[in-house]
Amino acid sequence: MPLQPSPTKDPIPGTVIFDGAMAMRGYALNKMCYSFNEEAGRAAFLADEDGYCDRFGLNEAQKAAIKARNALDLIAAGGNIYYLAKFIGMLGLNVQDVGAQQTGMTVEEFKAKLQAAGH
């Protein structure tokens, strides 16, 4: 990959830029995930997942992605990784679990890929 600046803005494969269009789509989902900063929000979600999603006005795609714990679907539905990280953390997953899920690898394979980047 050439390291120079480029005037083009070609899409970057496997990467969603969280711009205004994504922000408009994902506001309710991200607001719900932001509420997971608070213990009360996490407890309320875990006690009644569907009810909590409805309280924030999530749409069907967002609710399905939350139910499936599917990171790529959450991103496609407008989720921002910084807020999703709170959902992920609440579930006891870390960024390598989620990296593996998104790349279709096992966690061990994903870690090996990261190690390989050092060589």
């Binding site: 990959m1 969603v16 990296g99």
Partner: peptide, 18 residues
């Protein structure tokens, strides 16, 4: 580093060193 998307786990050592 990149956390999100199918490109998660992307690292670019050459760029970092530069």
């Amino acid at each position: 580093h990149q956390l999100d998307g199918e490109r998660a786990g992307f690292i670019n050592k050459a760029f970092d060193l530069m």
